[in-house]
């Protein structure tokens, strides 16, 4: 008999035990490990996907920020350029204005210098001319001329009329100091006597007179007393002429030339 029934039962039991043992020690752990691995791989894949998505988002964000930054930079650059252009324009304008001002000032200074030079030249010329004239006349003055001048002075005294004569007479009378007769040269004794005489006659009184030489009276004589004066001299002519010339120059020159007024004319009531 090939089949031993006890062995059959024993083998069937053995087989069932083996099924349980292998299930317990082989299939379950292996399948669990496989499941765990699959789960882990799935998790890792999901993680990778999540990271990929995140990376994509970050990349998008970065790209967006980059673009924003580019735009901002461009805007800033443009603004800076505009500002630089404006600043440049402003500086140029300022410089132009400054240069204009400087040029104006310079021109002004030049003109002023020119004017003052002109004035100085005019003044010097004038002074020189008059000095020459005075010198010429002074050199020419001789005794006969002096005498002639004395005669002219005396005649003038005598020919004085009305108000002038009265004013002078009053002045002579009230004066405490003696009247001063000044001349460009020392008067000779005869002339002094003639002048004293003429004064006495003219004002019908004894007039105290003091004679003084005055070189600036170019070829002339003058009588001064208590603010009143009778004079005659070439200087008067010259002064008159100088005044005319000065006024002529003044008219031509700019108003600034005011300062350079002609020499003050002595109080002269009778000078011609």
């Amino acid at each position: 008999m090939l089949i031993d029934w006890f062995t059959v039962i024993a083998q069937a039991l053995n087989f069932l035990i083996l099924v349980w043992l292998l299930k317990r020690f082989l299939y379950k752990p292996i399948l669990n490990a496989l499941d765990a691995r699959e789960k882990r791989i799935a998790t890792e894949l999901a993680d990778a996907d999540a990271k990929k998505t995140e990376a994509g988002q970050e990349r998008d964000e970065f790209t967006r920020k980059n673009e924003e930054f580019d735009q901002q930079r461009a805007a800033l650059l443009k603004k800076a350029e505009d500002e630089a252009t404006a600043e440049r324009q402003r500086l140029l304008d300022e410089a132009r204005k400054e240069s204009d001002t400087l040029r104006t000032k310079w021109q002004e200074a030049l003109r002023s210098e020119h004017q003052s030079l002109n004035k100085e030249l005019t003044r010097r010329t004038r002074e020189e001319i008059f000095a020459i004239a005075r010198k010429t006349l002074a050199d020419l003055a001789t005794t006969s001329l002096e005498e002639r001048l004395g005669e002219v002075f005396i005649r003038r005294l005598r020919e004085m009329d009305g108000q002038a004569k009265e004013g002078l007479a009053e002045a002579l009378k009230t004066a405490s100091d003696p009247a001063i007769v000044r001349s460009a040269f020392d008067l000779p004794a005869e002339q002094r006597a003639a002048i004293q005489h003429a004064l006495n006659e003219t004002f019908s009184a004894e007039i105290h007179v003091r004679f003084e030489p005055a070189p600036d009276l170019v070829s002339g004589i003058e009588l001064t007393t208590n603010g009143q004066k009778v004079a005659w001299s070439i200087a008067d002519y010259l002064v008159s002429l100088e005044k005319d010339v000065g006024e002529l120059l003044k008219e031509k020159a700019k108003p600034e030339a005011n300062a350079d007024a002609p020499p003050e004319q002595p109080a002269n009531e009778h000078g011609t």
Binding site: N14, L18, L21, F25, P29, A36, R40
Partner: peptide, 22 residues
């Protein structure tokens, strides 16, 4: 059969004791 059962069980246990899920 017992011997085979022992072999299979011990072999499986020896291997599955240090299973790695990694």
């Amino acid at each position: 059969t017992w011997g085979l059962m022992l072999l299979l069980t011990i072999g499986s246990t020896a291997i599955t004791r240090h299973l790695s899920a990694g």
